[in-house]
């Protein structure tokens, strides 16, 4: 039963990853092709809940592939992470999204 639930979570995560991927690419393609660019680049320092190495790899990989975020640096004690964001308008929504992704990854790697 436990294995079944884990497989279900992994499949759900894969589908989530693919959907995020397509959205990210359509976003950035639209932004590049249209003449007027509405990007406001900036840096953010976000807290990390994940401690395992596999989870951290998955998380930074997903974060680099989702719309407008790129991992720059992970602090030595694995507490915070410095990311570069392309659209830094609504900070609250970004943080909520990142928390949701971390929940999903913790569910998988546990």
């Amino acid at each position: 039963m436990k294995v079944l639930r884990k497989i279900y979570a992994i499949i759900g995560f894969l589908i989530y990853y693919l959907v995020k991927l397509v959205i990210a690419n359509v976003y950035i393609a639209y932004d590049i092709v249209t003449p007027k660019m509405h990007t406001r680049p900036g840096f953010h320092r976000i807290p990390l809940n994940i401690q395992s190495r596999t989870g951290l790899l998955l998380f930074s990989n997903l974060l680099s592939m989702t719309p407008g975020t790129l991992v720059v640096e992970i602090s030595g004690d694995r507490k915070t992470m410095l990311i570069h964001v392309l659209y830094s308008e609504n900070e609250k929504r970004l943080l909520g999204e990142i928390d949701k992704i971390q929940e999903k990854i913790i569910k998988i790697t546990r």
Binding site: A24, N25, I32, V33, S64, M65, G68
Partner: peptide
Amino acid sequence: LFILIAALGLIRFKDLYSRMHATTKATSF
């Protein structure tokens, strides 16, 4: 077409981090 868009982004964006956004995502896709 996506690879072409990545190259276009490499020309059009202003700073290095934004350029890397374009090349990482669009090229792999």
